[in-house]
């Protein structure tokens, strides 16, 4: 029966992201964009969790669990 259930996951930038247990936003971003967190300070990256911005100061205390929708964005060429 376990095989028929989908593995627990979040949706990160529109793609399934396997997650067994909740992880802090900081860890998720560090895994996703390795160079973007220097000395614990995010560089040029912002995060929305379920359509609400997670302020930088709350990255450690906010966790992303299975079922969450996460957007991780950065500045690119445009406009």
């Amino acid at each position: 029966m376990a095989e028929t259930l989908p593995a627990p996951h979040a949706v990160v930038n529109g793609e399934p992201y396997p997650l067994d247990a909740p992880v802090p936003v900081t860890d998720l971003v560090a895994r996703l964009v390795p160079g973007s967190v220097v000395d614990g300070v995010p560089q040029g990256v912002a995060v929305a969790l379920d359509d609400a911005v997670v302020p930088r100061g709350a990255w450690e205390s906010t966790t992303v669990g299975p079922g969450a929708r996460v957007e991780v964005v950065t500045a690119v060429q445009g406009g």
């Binding site: 996703l32 991780v72 690119v76 060429q77 445009g78």
Partner: peptide
């Protein structure tokens, strides 16, 4: 100078 906001690329 303007910049756009887009999803980060997968590493």
């Amino acid at each position: 100078t303007t910049v756009a906001m887009r999803r980060v690329a997968r590493p």
